[in-house]
Design a protein around this nucleic acid. Sequence first.
DNA 1: AGGTGTGAACACTTTCACAGCA
DNA 2: TGCTGTGAAAGTGTTCACACCT
Lengths: 220, 220
Amino acid sequence: MSRKISDSTVRRLSRYLRILESWPDGDRDTVSSGQLAERAGTTAAQVRKDLSLFGSFGKRGTGYGTVDLTRHLREILGLERTWRLALVGAGRIGAALFEYGALRRRGFHIVAVFDQDPAKVGRAWGPLVVRDVGTLAGVLPGLSADMAVLAVPAPVAQELAELVVAGGIRGILNFAPVRLRLPEEVSVHNVNLVAELESLAFDLTHPDRLAGENGQPVRA
Amino acid sequence: MSRKISDSTVRRLSRYLRILESWPDGDRDTVSSGQLAERAGTTAAQVRKDLSLFGSFGKRGTGYGTVDLTRHLREILGLERTWRLALVGAGRIGAALFEYGALRRRGFHIVAVFDQDPAKVGRAWGPLVVRDVGTLAGVLPGLSADMAVLAVPAPVAQELAELVVAGGIRGILNFAPVRLRLPEEVSVHNVNLVAELESLAFDLTHPDRLAGENGQPVRA
DNA sequence: AGGTGTGAACACTTTCACAGCA
DNA sequence: TGCTGTGAAAGTGTTCACACCT
């Protein structure tokens, strides 16, 4: 029972969890795969397959217990704990993330902010003080940070990513439009706004060539 | 010659273009699929397949002319024109996007900003003035906007998306963590930061279950 | 030789369909 | 009856391998 899990499955699990946590009509006792699928924009079979990769959580004829399934999903995704994030880059994107309450609410705590700009270093960000990126590798181990958010210009992204990894980080959310070359034990997820807009431009330019159905991206 | 094109292909085309436009070592006359692949983190065969879906741009024994290929890619992606964006939501994320110079540089022009908050409406954003979302459907047609960026709280995203579509928009970049239900001729791409962090949490929780490579084989 | 373009093989993902249990 | 769990089938995307051109 240790099959490889695809990225799209993980994304859907995250979506199922969000649906359960913000279920519109009151407190349901149980949900069926069909009901979840309808809200998630997928099929009942897909929901069952996804869940069955991690165990048998449902009752035949009834569905899944909502409380039970919610707990299982949180456990599967690794959300039964909090995650400590180091934010690298105190620019606009960094600021937007820092003030995005949903992160903290969902267990992702920003525990340090770093920047290259001497004008920003030393400034207070909420309860934190912006540190110099030069101190990254030295300071990181003491923070017990689990992940880093890289919100820096493309030309310095690779270099800073390496520092972050040297500091012990194994998970990176990268906003710079470059492919980071890192040891394979480091997990990197990319968010590339220009690429998203370019995909949109493609779609609008070739309305006939749209492959998938509407509602689901991909990826980042 | 009008096969459906997968999302991953489009994303790679965008990546090839970025690589060509910021080629590190001087001006190459030609590139081979292998050289592009190496930088894009894919295989030579994949590069050739992707490109061959749109024509035969290469010369056997030589490779692809860089200038030529760059132009073709821009044309394929629909970037030989500028795209007019309506920004809906003048919060932190909206602000970050508004000041993200790369967008304009790549031909995506924000031509209007809307918000729900009366305190924000009327304020100047660069050369623009923040408008009330109530005026969306009325004002949009006159803007000849092509796409909308939805950077609003989840509870109002669906409603505003519908207004935007009513205003004639056919492409939406959605930052709200909800699946928008819209007519299928509308193309929606989602950016969900919490979902990305949750995927990262999954990866770190199950280091054994990482399926595909997300970055690239070891190096650096 | 060097490198493209592409059918065929392969791998992965989603959907189908149904046995089995509450 | 209703709905799960899951092998098998169908569908998609990626890699291989080689004919072909320069």
